[in-house]
Nucleic acid binder design. Structure first.
Length: 494
RNA sequence: GGCGCGGUACCCAAGUGGUAAGGGAGAGGUCUGCAAAACCUUUAUGCGUCGGUUCGAUUCCGACCCGCGCCUCCA
């Protein structure tokens, strides 16, 4: 069975096969770096990350390219407002974006920046003009002529056949031939930042960069192009128009779009007070792993209702998985193996694969792993897990985490970074007690903790429970959970 | 108005023409010096409403109600 994936172009689920046997070439529309990334941005990027990880787990080499839009109207305006150069302005937010992406477990794609590909873009425009697919207006801007691409609208299923051509719209401002024609290159207005190029000074239109850079990195035709659902029109439609009309070849074969999320049941917006950047959530004390888990728990094509309560629930779910792994790695088991556990591990791996092959049904994959956890825990309790069962169970958990990436317990150092950042940005006030407490368990070293535990165990052995309880309370306050099991003491950071 | 998606238990949420995954939360229990973890039992005769097709529908069709998205640069 191969991956069944929804293709926006055909509006149906199709079997995914790359154009080259073993290599998948995919391009994802990345962020415009004018501000900190919000939770909606990251839903899309995590969906793409999940796809990338699953393709790799399925045996493909993956070439994953993502653009950084480091020039657009908003950037130019904000940079001017702050009195800094465009480069200075975007560098800060690009860095923040990459830190955030790493924080929630997104593997870094090959990055391409718009401002580093100006010459290729100018060349692209020149070719379009030579073939009479684009035109220059009096102010020095360039537009793509939609009338020259009959299949315009094929991705978004829009019908433009009724459009009146040649009727000039917005004459004063744009001088476009048709209202739907889109800007390839924008001439600078007085005082605006601009780039010199073979087609004159200005800045690239948004759509142009993605066509030029994706084809530059991956070839005229490649496997998959991804982005948020809002990009279907006009962004991706325009990319298709300019790319395919120039090369005469199909552009991307699969179009992958992640659905927008809701926050607390409503569209995320600043005015509703439900607009969260990733950093806002960490400042509230939420772990990066909780955020990633919640964002992956609903399949990418379904609307996900992101709530703060859901984040708490996600934290407990992740903890359950981590506890299970700890139980596997720290327990003592009798020699041998049990058929039940061996087949449980096998079935779980199969179920997860089948779920993900079904258009990345992450909810089903999670159900499979939890089913395994429950049944294996029950077997632990009844003593039927054997030494040779540990490896396959751990391997199944490992397969899960190759995709979901929530088990690695590095939340605390990541949260510490956000604390440090908040201080440098004068946002000390926004550091909640929840975050302070969460970071606290990072203060004690492993050796310190083990020393305390040894003391505690000594007290317990001599049945000096007042002393042991005091030590336990002290460690609990410091964010350390101690568990006394029949196989000995086990501890973890909360 | 055009095109599209969804409404499933207290919350999040998957799914199927044949009788409702999973997680969280609550309740009861087992284990435990305490705690933690874990396990067991329990919580939708019900899947927006009303009709229709069918031996049988939450699943297909229709209407309606509600929510959401795109329709020129918001992931």
């Amino acid at each position: 069975m191969a991956l069944q994936l929804y293709n926006t172009m055909s509006s149906r689920v199709e079997e995914f096969h790359p154009l080259n046997d073993s290599e998948v070439r995919m391009y994802a529309c990345g962020p415009t770096v004018y501000d900190y990334g919000h939770i909606g941005n990251f839903r899309t990027f995590i969906a793409v990350d999940l796809l990338r990880r699953f393709l790799r787990q399925s045996g493909y080499q993956v070439r994953h390219v993502m653009n950084i839009t480091d020039v657009d109207d908003k950037i130019i305006r904000n940079a001017a407002r702050d009195g800094v150069s465009v480069q200075q302005y975007t560098a800060k937010y690009e860095k923040a974006f990459l830190e955030d992406a790493a924080m929630i477990g997104i593997e870094q794609p090959t990055l391409v920046r718009a401002t580093e590909h100006i010459p290729e873009m100018a060349e692209f425009v020149t070719k379009l003009v030579e073939r009479d697919l684009a035109y220059r207006t009096e102010d020095g801007s360039y537009y793509f002529c939609i009338a020259k691409f009959p299949r315009y609208g094929k991705l978004s299923k829009k019908d433009f056949s009724g459009m009146v051509d040649g009727a000039r719209v917005d004459v004063d401002e744009y001088e476009k031939d048709s209202a739907r024609d889109f800007a390839l290159w924008k001439a600078p207005k007085p005082g605006e930042a601009s780039w010199d190029s073979s087609i004159g000074p200005g800045r690239p239109g948004w759509h142009l960069e993605c066509s030029v850079m994706s084809m530059g990195e991956l070839g005229d035709s490649f496997d998959l192009h991804a982005g948020g659902e809002d990009l279907i029109f006009p962004h991706h439609e325009n990319e298709i128009a300019q790319s395919e009309s120039l090369t005469g070849k199909p552009f991307a074969h699969f179009w992958f779009h992640a659905r927008f999320l809701l926050v607390e049941g409503e569209k995320m917006s600043k005015s509703l007070g439900n607009f969260f950047t990733l950093r806002d959530l960490v400042l509230k004390g939420h772990k990066p792993s909780s955020i990633r888990y919640l964002l992956t728990s609903v399949p990418y094509r379904n609307q996900l209702n992101f709530t703060l309560d859901g984040l708490k629930q996600a934290a407990v779910s992740v903890e359950r998985l981590r506890n299970f792994r700890l139980r596997l790695t720290s327990g003592n088991f009798p020699a041998g193996s049990s058929d039940e556990m061996q087949s449980l591990a096998r079935e779980t791996v199969d179920r997860m694969r089948a779920a993900l092959e079904d258009d990345l049904n992450t909810a089903q994959a999670q159900a499979a792993i939890f089913e395994m956890v429950r049944r294996a825990n029950a077997a632990f309790d009844s003593g039927t897990v054997k030494k040779d069962d540990v490896a396959p169970l751990l391997a199944a958990l490992g397969k899960f985490d190759e995709i979901f990436a929530v088990l690695n317990d590095d939340d605390i150092p990541k949260m510490k970074q956000v604390v440090d950042w908040a201080k440098t940005e004068d946002r000390d006030r926004d550091i909640t007690n929840e975050l302070r407490e969460a970071v606290q368990s990072g203060q004690l070293s492993d050796a310190d903790i083990e020393k305390k535990i040894a003391e505690m165990e000594g007290a317990r052995r001599s049945r000096n429970f007042n002393v042991s309880d005091a030590l336990r309370a002290e460690l609990t306050t410091a964010g350390i959970v101690i568990e006394n099991t029949k196989d000995g003491v086990r501890w973890r950071r909360k």
